[in-house]
């Protein structure tokens, strides 16, 4: 029960001028757990993701991360090289737009292999074999390993981004609307893929989404944000089936039932 947290944030506050993007936000994440941050545009959820991942500094509060050696590291005071090393290996970031993360002029295999090479892999054959293995895990035909991403569909690009991110076996992955902008059928496949990969590999995920259905399918726990504040948090099914805060009730009641 008292298993140590993987990521622990407390008192995060960040204002853009008069606009509060984060107000005294706390968040804990345990190994292997999926935490969804939901809310509409401008609620501060993407800002929270950026602050949790060290991309943006809060004005107050701190984010602590338990490194693989078990030591707690302050994400915002650790040296830049150490933070970048985390982002290259132990962490991953999946963007809504895969083009932000992928190198469009580099083959699929090169894209997947980059993080391995950044970690010091210097054996072409091994890197290529790992790339092919990961393409298959994300259901991309191994024959496409030498193709450029620009020949891939939107869903394939997103899966390629996931392969590129997971190749180093990160323990924590940040996802920003990973299924946004995709066709519904493509979304379903991607959700299923994310769910099974994350469960099988025991990866912890902080998932930002405005789509409550995505949160319900993937997340163990959920945080609802409005104007920079966490207005409600709890188990995903609790919050979505028994919403208490007016804003959560509005969000839940606004979802079209299929």
């Amino acid at each position: 029960m008292s298993e140590p947290t993987l990521l622990s944030a407390s008192g995060l506050t960040l204002r853009f001028g008069a606009i509060p993007a984060l107000l005294d936000v706390d968040a804990d994440l345990w190994p292997g757990e999926i935490l969804a941050i939901v809310g509409e545009s401008g609620s501060g959820k993407t800002t929270l993701l950026n602050v949790l991942s060290g991309k943006m500094a809060p004005q107050s509060g701190q984010v602590m991360y338990r490194d693989p050696a078990g030591a707690m590291q302050d994400v915002h005071t650790m040296p830049a090289p150490a933070l970048r090393a985390l982002h290259r290996s132990d962490w991953g970031f999946v963007h809504q737009n895969p083009r932000e993360n992928l190198r469009m002029a580099v083959s699929a295999g090169g894209n997947v292999g980059e993080r391995l090479m950044a970690q010091g892999s210097r054996h072409y054959g091994h890197i290529r074999a790992a790339a092919i293995d990961w393409l298959e895990q994300v259901e991309i035909d191994a024959a496409r390993v030498d193709d450029l991403p620009r020949t891939f569909s939107g869903g394939m690009l997103q899966r390629l981004q996931i392969a590129r991110t997971l190749v180093t076996h990160p323990r924590l992955v940040f996802m920003d609307e990973p299924t946004g902008g995709l066709d519904v059928s493509v979304q379903a496949r991607l959700l299923d893929l994310i769910r099974s990969l994350v469960r099988r590999l025991g990866i912890a995920v902080v998932l930002v989404t405005h789509d409550l259905a995505v949160a319900r399918l993937l997340a163990d726990r959920i945080m609802v944000m409005q104007r920079g504040e966490v207005v409600e948090a709890g188990l995903t099914d609790q919050v979505l089936d028994d919403p208490r805060h007016p804003y959560t009730q509005l969000l839940v009641s606004s979802v079209l039932q299929a």
Binding site: M1, W30, A188, D192, R195, L217, D220, L235, Q238
Partner: peptide, 26 residues
């Protein structure tokens, strides 16, 4: 805590709802 509830559900408490809610494709 939510995590305690998850642990209780995992090993102790089962629930059969009226409706099946699952991920597509499984």
């Amino acid at each position: 805590t939510p995590r305690q509830i998850v642990a209780v559900r995992r090993t102790t408490l089962g629930y059969v709802s009226q409706f099946l809610r699952v991920v597509p494709r499984v």
